[in-house]
Design a protein around this nucleic acid. Structure first.
Lengths: 188, 188
DNA sequence: TCCATTATTTGACCTTGGTCAAATGTTCTT
DNA sequence: AAGAACATTTGACCAAGGTCAAATAATGGA
């Protein structure tokens, strides 16, 4: 299941020194505290966040309710994809669910670097492809699985999510109400 | 709404002659008849299909039922994304819904061409980004809109879909049963 | 044109999951 | 340790959409 992420990591490891240096030179490490917003709605997502430690999530508001669209753990890349890609205001927030440390890369600096270091362009493509595949699978799950099945799937595939994240957030990530999730948990 | 597609088209138009020639040299035109399968489940999606005329769709089977995941019209690029990207067996079919003419590009030939013509790499990235954005919006719709709202949205945004495609297919594309779609249509 | 086939509609009933409200548990402060 | 604030569970009821079955269109051949 992680094959493509592995491929990207291998690609990163195999990058030549110059390219890696260029990438490092436009990145910087930063800490956020639990509850901090790395990106707010209506801001343009002008940087990508590579999670070094901690947990974060992306969500939007739908008549007052927070709908979680993605959860980020170590080595995940947090970005509001449409906002980042088109450099237009984001409908999503990115929030630290614990204290987190991230490596931040500026969008424009990365665009510039891609021109000089073509391997970064390939990396960019790989990340976009990975995200597309991830999205297709998420869509597939919503089409083919019931709420219970989706919960069991996450429980099997990513138990750390269930253990570390409040149920309200998990419920919205699964696309169900908090009460329904609680009832699903009540029976096995 | 079409801004990114426009951007891609402009990019294509602005491609230098050498790159365009290279792209043409690895592409060929082909006709399919209504009902033909351009890609079958379990096949590796080894080529991309640029629709020149006609209509096609992508779908998979979920306990015997066909779930339509994408509809293709003129100037759309038909591809089973995960299968194409990872060159692994597809869970989806691609089917001609009318007689269609497509421009076919071989996966491996395109990969090779990207090495010689870096602008094709940028094109590849743009297509992946476009697909990702499209997927995010589709997911957003499923999360925030009722069946009726999704139908009205498609009716407003893409009336040609409603006019030309059988309701069974539209229903599965909207993620609802044929009967529910029929009832939605009954009341305005 | 007439039949066979396929599309669409309609009815009756059921299931999943949502909503509102209240009851418990937990945690973090001070 | 006592609250305040938040997290989770439970109950009662509701609504959207699904399923199964049958009735009507609509369409393409021979």
């Amino acid at each position: 299941m992680n094959t493509y992420i592995d491929k990207i990591n291998n690609y990163l490891k195999a990058l030549d020194n110059d390219t890696l240096k260029a990438l490092e030179s436009i990145s910087s490490t930063k800490n956020y505290k639990k509850g901090d917003l790395l990106l707010k709605q209506n801001e343009v997502c002008g940087r990508s966040y590579w999670v070094l430690s901690g947990i974060a999530r992306k969500y939007y508001l739908n008549d007052g309710k927070e709908i979680t669209t993605e959860l980020y753990f170590e080595d995940d890349l947090a970005v509001s994809f449409e906002s980042y890609t088109l450099q237009q205001p984001s409908r999503e927030f990115i929030e630290a669910l614990s204290d987190v440390t991230v490596s931040i890369t500026n969008y424009q600096a990365f665009q510039n670097a891609k021109a000089s270091y073509p391997k970064l362009l390939i990396l960019d493509l790989m990340l976009a492809e990975y995200h597309g595949i991830w999205l297709e699978n998420r869509l597939f799950q919503f089409h083919t699985m019931s709420a219970t099945e989706r919960y069991l799937d996450i429980l099997k595939r990513s138990p750390h999510i269930i253990q570390t994240i409040p149920l309200t957030i998990i419920a919205s990530y699964l696309g169900i109400s908090l009460e329904t999730l609680s009832r699903i948990r009540a029976k096995i």
